[in-house]
């Protein structure tokens, strides 16, 4: 079994890829650093361990002008591959433009101690799509959790409780847009909040403009979010952004029987319709 750094070295030496995006040892004990390796000398830095939380699919749209002649290699866990599927589905990248170094993942951790929340409902220890596979699957003794259990729990609250909860949470938002920047599916060249004419969402921070921003973010990702949890991880004010995303995923699953990131040929649910869609709320 070859290690990631050996594979990366080989790929770069044989000139098959233009760069390898991967993880290296971080500057803090419980973090790994993302690196973009362009020469085989640097490839030694590449590692994979249980601290590799980041979803590297983000670099495909943010850092490269991709070509089919010389793809970019990316180290990917099962959950990250879903984002690539989404990007292919939405015609942002082509399959041939990425070389996926799939890793068998046994769960990752954000702080070195606890398993990342997304891992509890993950069934993709082995990626669904890859060009080369690394790592070994361990016996997984994680108790599987229904991904929507916290959404269902939250829905039991009254209208006012929910409103007050979100007001308290969204009040903390400082609009650093880390949630947008780390999201592999937020690839718009110009985000709606950066547009000035017309100005849909005011750039200042207040409950009302923060609410508009978070409604926008959640709704734009409805049926597209693959649940990688990067937005929530990047938020230093711990706003439960995944809760909104999961709710959207649940609505889309319940109504249109669709799950994001599983089929690169499927049509995005909000860019599609059926004659028999429900309309019991329409007069």
């Amino acid at each position: 079994m070859n290690s990631i750094s050996e594979i990366a070295k080989k790929l770069l030496d044989e000139n098959r890829v233009s760069a390898v995006v991967g993880y290296s040892i971080g500057s803090l004990p419980n973090k790994t650093k993302t690196v973009i390796v362009k020469s085989s000398q640097q490839a030694e830095k590449l590692i994979f361990n249980n601290l590799c939380v980041n979803n590297l699919a983000i670099y495909l749209t943010k850092s490269f002008r991709l070509t089919t002649q010389k793809p970019v290699a990316v180290v990917m866990k099962g959950c990250d591959v879903k984002s690539v599927t989404g990007l292919i589905q939405e015609k942002q990248i082509e399959r041939e433009q990425v070389f996926i170094i799939g890793v068998k993942c046994n769960g990752v951790s954000e702080d070195g101690k606890n398993l990342s929340p997304k891992c509890y409902s993950c069934k993709l220890q082995t990626p669904k799509m890859y060009d080369i596979l690394v790592g070994e699957e361990e016996e997984k003794n994680i108790e599987f959790k229904n991904p929507f259990s916290d959404v269902e729990e939250f829905e039991k609250k009254s209208l006012d409780e929910r409103w007050n909860f979100w007001m308290n949470e969204l009040e903390k938002c400082v609009k650093c847009y880390a949630c947008r920047q780390v999201c592999p599916l937020c690839y718009c060249e110009k985000c709606i909040v950066d547009k000035t004419v017309p100005r849909w969402i005011e750039p200042h921070t207040s409950k009302s403009s923060n609410l508009s921003w978070h409604i926008t973010r959640a709704f734009h990702l409805a049926g597209r979010c693959t649940g990688c949890g990067e937005c929530e991880r990047a938020c230093h004010h711990n706003i439960p952004l995944s809760l909104l995303n999961k709710k959207m995923a649940k609505v889309v699953y319940d109504n249109f029987n669709y799950q994001a990131g599983l089929d690169d040929k499927a049509k995005s649910p909000l860019a599609d319709f059926k004659f028999q869609d429900k309309e019991d709320f329409i007069r």
Binding site: V174, C176, A178, Q181, A234
Partner: peptide, 11 residues
């Protein structure tokens, strides 16, 4: 190269 252009650091 790995920066994602968010404002966390500055804010």
């Amino acid at each position: 190269s790995q920066c994602l252009s968010c404002g966390s650091c500055a804010y």
